[in-house]
Nucleic acid binder design. Sequence first.
DNA 1: GCCAATATCATGCCTCCCGATATATAGTGG
DNA 2: CCACTATATATCGGGAGGCATGATATTGGC
Lengths: 107, 107
Amino acid sequence: MTEPAFLVLTALVDEPRHGYGIAQEVERLSGGRVQLKIGTLYGVLDRLAADGFVEADREEVRQGRLRRYYRLTDEGARALEEEAVRLADNARRAVERLRLRQAGGLA
Amino acid sequence: MTEPAFLVLTALVDEPRHGYGIAQEVERLSGGRVQLKIGTLYGVLDRLAADGFVEADREEVRQGRLRRYYRLTDEGARALEEEAVRLADNARRAVERLRLRQAGGLA
DNA sequence: GCCAATATCATGCCTCCCGATATATAGTGG
DNA sequence: CCACTATATATCGGGAGGCATGATATTGGC
């Protein structure tokens, strides 16, 4: 799973959000580092929907503009959790090795 | 940084390795989950070298076959560490939210 | 002559990036 | 009231980058 997809799923964990809201939440989640362009976001959402990880929640018309809300499916929550475990494992192993390297390099 | 690139850098933290050795170490590191094809691996190595994250260490001829060893540069070590922090952050935030969701869902 | 180990190359696909476009309403000037 | 523009949101199309995969080259051992 790519980082944009991972962050989109994370943004949908607590509540359904619409496209613009997801983009803003992803930016917030990543500390401003990841700023998904709107065009990028909808491609990501389409793929996640095709995988069954998110689904349409409802549509609202807010000030004449359509808002389509997406929510995380149970399958999406499972996939996100598994991916989070992988990321944490990868990070942990890299950090462990880097520590050993510094120790060895200084000796 | 993509996962293949991340794992290749991690595989080179402790000592220089040659192509086949990197592929085997990546498979071991990932618990058998990531099996880089040789063709994929060299593309990843080329890009990492272009970024200055790895460099050629030495070449050996072992049983008539060329072995080209690569080593991690200091810049590569820094990049790996930064990426590890990002991965850990992403994973931590996702897990936190998922926990809250379960708590909320069960209430 | 065939097999194993290792590296290189070519092709295609998938995902992302980015810019352009569509739409409806609110607001603003005439 | 009408035209124009700005805003919020969604959609579409082209292009680039990175990975997957299979084919090819090379050398020594059996």
